[in-house]
């Protein structure tokens, strides 16, 4: 069974109000006010001096359970939204692998689920480790990217992107968190992502809530639990409205969705649920035995949900 051994998250220290980004991107101030008032967005974090490798290493540096177990790491995966994250010939992932002494590990990136690729990477890591059959083997998953261009800073009418990262140590032994169920569905008709036509975007908006609800319920069913038994949802941090609407649709209490980070991080690509995991531990919102959900949506469009037991 796939387990999460440990998660560490890193948020850069530079805080930027959304109004400042909106002005830089020539957004209508009224729309920025809508983002603040109704989407619950307030500020994001940037690390102006650090590159992607540094962002990843800052998360890995806090992963104390990796220390001394480097030789057990068989896979290093980078879950990312953007297919191009650094100018050729730079390779931040290989740079990080080397810095951590993990040159022996098979290393690759997962991008096709866009911002839902983080959950896909955890699933893949678990499947690969299980196929290998070594109960002591580990995989290291990275999530989080640089918001280094205007298209990486804003999803129009939806959210602001922030910089933040997470490192997730995955195993198949007696980890802290057991993966009970995973559901994912890709609607290929929305594959144009940010370049969708207005008609296709309207269609995506129409199916969004049902798409989200479908994977949540499917993951819960595969985990063999009821939604009512799910103690906490660790959501994507795209905006608050998505979750208020989903909770109304599913009859799930919105105060059991960890929405605290939306105002302070914005949407950190594939890293949201893992950043929220660390916050949940800090706020003591997860106790041993609690079932919880990680949920993500990627443009393209993929809806994914994972049920864990803490």
């Amino acid at each position: 069974m796939t387990t999460i051994e440990a998660v560490s998250a890193y948020l850069p220290p530079t805080v930027v109000p959304i109004e400042e980004i909106g002005e830089r991107l020539a957004m209508d101030p009224k729309q920025v006010r809508t983002f603040r008032r109704f989407y619950g967005l307030s500020e994001v974090r940037y690390e102006p001096e650090g590159d992607l490798a540094q962002l990843m290493l800052n998360a890995a540096g806090k992963l104390t359970s990796l220390i001394g177990r480097e030789s057990q790491v068989r896979y290093v995966l980078q879950a990312r939204t953007l297919q191009t994250v650094a100018p050729y010939p730079e390779n931040p992932l290989h740079e990080v692998r080397q810095a951590l002494g993990l040159e022996h590990a098979v290393t690759f990136a997962v991008t096709q689920h866009a911002c839902a690729s983080g959950l896909l990477a955890v699933h893949l890591a678990g499947e690969l480790l299980a196929a290998d059959g070594d109960p002591d083997a580990l995989a290291l998953v990275f999530a989080g990217e640089k918001a280094f261009t205007p298209t990486a800073q804003l999803i129009p009418n939806t959210t602001f992107m922030g910089e933040g990262s997470a490192a997730v140590l995955v195993g198949t032994g007696s980890g802290h968190d057991r993966l009970l169920g995973y559901a994912t569905r890709t609607y290929g008709q929305f594959n144009a992502g940010l370049r969708m036509t207005a008609e296709r975007a309207a269609e995506f908006e129409t199916i969004y809530q049902d798409g989200l609800a479908e994977v949540v319920l499917a993951a819960v069913q595969r985990a063999g639990v009821d939604l009512a038994d799910v103690h906490l949802i660790l959501p994507h941090n795209v905006n608050r409205l998505s979750w208020v609407r989903l909770c109304k649709q599913l009859g799930y209490p919105v105060d059991r969705v960890l929405l605290d980070n939306i105002a302070v991080t914005g949407h950190c690509f594939c890293a949201d649920s893992f950043i929220n995991y660390q916050t949940a531990l800090e706020l003591e919102r997860l106790a041993p035995g609690d079932r919880y959900l990680m949920v993500a949506v990627g443009l393209g469009a993929t809806f994914s949900a994972m049920v864990f037991e803490h």
Partner: peptide, 16 residues
């Protein structure tokens, strides 16, 4: 989700 970001900005009526 991906409409033009200036859509509301093109609104002809003033907020007031």
């Amino acid at each position: 989700m991906t409409r033009e970001p200036t859509k509301t900005g093109n609104h002809p009526r003033k907020e007031t």
